[in-house]
Design a protein around this nucleic acid. Structure first.
Lengths: 200, 200, 200, 200
DNA sequence: GATGAATGAGAATTCATTCAT
DNA sequence: CATGAATGAATTCTCATTCAT
């Protein structure tokens, strides 16, 4: 009788090992062997679950985004007021800066790989889609506020893009230098600025 | 009669060739040979000017920042009003998105390399310094505005960090998807938001 | 109540699966997993019957030769006249070209492995023995003809070697290019040439 | 000034090293590193001349056939009589058995690789072409004999194919077992048989 | 007996760097 | 000075084999 293995579980373990290794060393410097070791398995086993390093990289992107989204969903659950949602959204973002540091470090590599080239790589498509989804989600909150009169905004999608950009840019800057600014002060200041700019 | 070679000039040519190659392929995928070819010289010659690929990468960072700074200086020249300077600063930033695309694509790699690790790499130090300088420059403009009463801001450094973050995040997003948002609309909207948030 | 398995039968099934896979892909490119799949069993099971890939390869050689010999025996059964036996032998050989194509394709690999090296590999010994047996068999037919005066030949063993060589060389050539020559025309021509050269 | 290297010469040296290694170990077992070592160069250098193992293998085929052909040309030079040419041709073939042993051992691999598959591999095409050329060359000699009345043959191309097959089959057999038959006796016998079968 | 998940030795290939000319 | 031929450390990926169930 064949050994019964929870393939989905092991797959996730590999993904999480990959995240740690990639975040530590960077995608290009990271060796498959290191990923295997981090996952506590043999080199060849990784290839039973992912057919190449690229494939693993891609799968990790999906995995990470799914996890991130789930985190946001959970944290935003139950909040109905658009302004409150935005405030919470920003707060959660700042939380992730600290809690999901490795996550964002890996993201550097997606940006570096995905920004490049006109060839419509799978990664590029995914990255583009992920951004579009995020923009739409945030824009939807703003639009809801506009509708119920609690917010004012001519172009919710543009505002959403801008908010996301600020958050991205802040992790970037903060990860390059933890002393660049105080996270809490920045969160308060940013929340104020954004909410004020959307005030009716 | 030795051929007199303008070493500084050739050095710059190599740097610019490297920028094109790195922006096209990414630092890790880029081959030294490709850089040499792009510069129209022999592979070995690159090593006469830069002692290693890392060294070239690092030197390119300095070169690029110097060029960028020079561009900003020129474009901001003559403007005295803090608010006007900020407006112009943002406008110039958006200009660079289009004009300096390869530049930013290479920047992805600096972020990817520099964000990582506690090891105080030379690159990391430089990146940190560059950010600090940029923050100080922008903060200085704001502080000047606060001083002459034309602007209001509790923490100019924090505001500067935030502005820079937004701009960084926007290139990132825009380079991943040129259709993410309209650059001109974004510039206008962003300028408004920022200036309004600094209104006394 | 243990499942009674016809081990010999399954063994043969694996051998035949191996023949198909080896003939398709070549011994070296063929994967044990592919053999297992072709046999409709699990990868590990192959190792219950053959202790290694080499072992399987070797066993296949024996199996194939036994099958081939049986085929010849059946086809030559009842023929007594040496000349007629030779004619039939050649005809059967040409039949096998078409009918046993995979068989010969695998043989390429035995030649490639067996021709090489002074190390007295098991395979090499087997190959040598197989050739010796075949030569003796054919030589025996010729010798019988010489004895009954229906054929003339100074050195039956040499003639046998030559006949076998021609047949081997023809499969080789024909398998490399099905359009190299017409099989039927070749068979007729060859039969004539051989029989005439052995005419008293 | 760049180092001046006789690239063609080194290429040939690598090819010859490859022939030795491939003939010794077989194409599949042979390691690129062994080829490099045999050629007295570094592993990477082989790749400066051949872009892959397959490429080297293919190039070796061409190289070997060219060398073989040159050898035949030289040895047949000056002979005009068709019968004499055939006799000489066979004699040269038997010479090569002894002199070019490694050559033929490598050929096993071409047969093993080239016989297989319907995919029109480059190697397969080359092999087919090589056979066709050889058949035509031999057939031309026979046809010349038919024309001047010194030989008789209904189908020179068929006869040529048969002669080549016999020679191929003989190397095969002989390389598998040097004691299978005496080369000289076989040569004489074969020459007789062939010439007699072509007698008017 | 049968299975297939796990493994790691092994091989092809790449590419930064050196250095003879 | 400039060059590009040579190099080998490093890395990805393959696949025969093992063995727990």
């Amino acid at each position: 009788m064949p050994i019964i293995v929870d393939k989905a579980r092991k797959r996730r373990e590999i993904l999480e090992a990959a995240m740690r290794v990639f975040s530590r060393e960077g995608y290009h410097r990271a060796k498959m062997e290191a990923v295997a070791e981090e996952a506590g398995i043999g080199k060849g086993t990784v290839y039973e679950y992912f057919k190449s390093k690229t494939d693993l990289f891609l799968a990790l992107h999906d995995h990470m985004l799914a996890e991130l989204k789930a985190f946001y969903m959970k944290e935003l659950e139950g909040i109905r007021q658009p302004a409150a949602m935005l405030e919470r959204f920003i707060a959660v973002a700042f939380q992730t800066f600290r809690l999901w540091e490795p996550f964002f470090l890996v993201f550097f590599d997606y940006w570096a790989e995905g920004g490049r080239g006109e060839q419509q790589t799978l990664l590029q498509t995914r990255l583009r889609e992920a951004y579009a989804v995020a923009r739409n989600d945030v824009a939807a909150i703003i639009a809801a506020g506009v509708k119920d009169g609690s917010l004012r905004c001519d172009n919710p999608l543009l505002a959403a893009a801008s908010i996301l950009a600020t958050l991205d840019g802040l992790v970037l800057q903060w990860l390059c230098d933890r002393d660049a600014f105080d996270l809490d002060a920045m969160r308060e200041s940013l929340t104020q600025t954004i909410l004020r700019s959307l005030q009716p």
